[in-house]
Amino acid sequence: MDQYVVFKSHDQYFALPVQVVTRIIETDDFISLPDVPDFVLGVFEHQKHMIPIIDLRRKLFNEFTTKSDAAKVILCDWKDQHLGLYVENIIGIEHLKETDYEKELTQADLKHDYIGKFLKLKDQVVISLELEFLFDNQQSENLTSTVEKFEKTEENANVDKSQAD
């Protein structure tokens, strides 16, 4: 029984393994990025890193997450860098049981790669996300490159700022 961070998006329970999650923060104040897909809400500066923030609901269900006090950002590790998931609500850190549902879905050819496992929290079915397969290659590259560019310009700006000081 592994520990998962359980959260809600589009009224569906999702889960990420605790090892992947670095921190949960409460904010909707992001730095907007130009020329990016609409599910990218912007970037958030955390511990001197520019972390891209993804609206999970927009990405998976094509609808923007409603802004509220309960909405949180889950910061997690993604391809040697960080990624923020904007979700509706955090349920908590739970020990979840695994099921065999994903096999049936695979047979029915309905399972996407980003769905890792189907887990159970009491009577609720919780989908475990595979962050590696959340984006296709093109999207990943674009995202990575954009963030890198942004980080560089930011660093330069900071250097200029420190030199000026």
């Binding site: 520990q3 090892q19 999650v21 670095t22 949960i24 955090i90 908590g92 850190i93």
Partner: peptide
């Protein structure tokens, strides 16, 4: 919550 995450990690 974050403390729990830290602890779990």
């Amino acid at each position: 919550l974050n403390a729990s995450i830290e602890a779990a990690r």
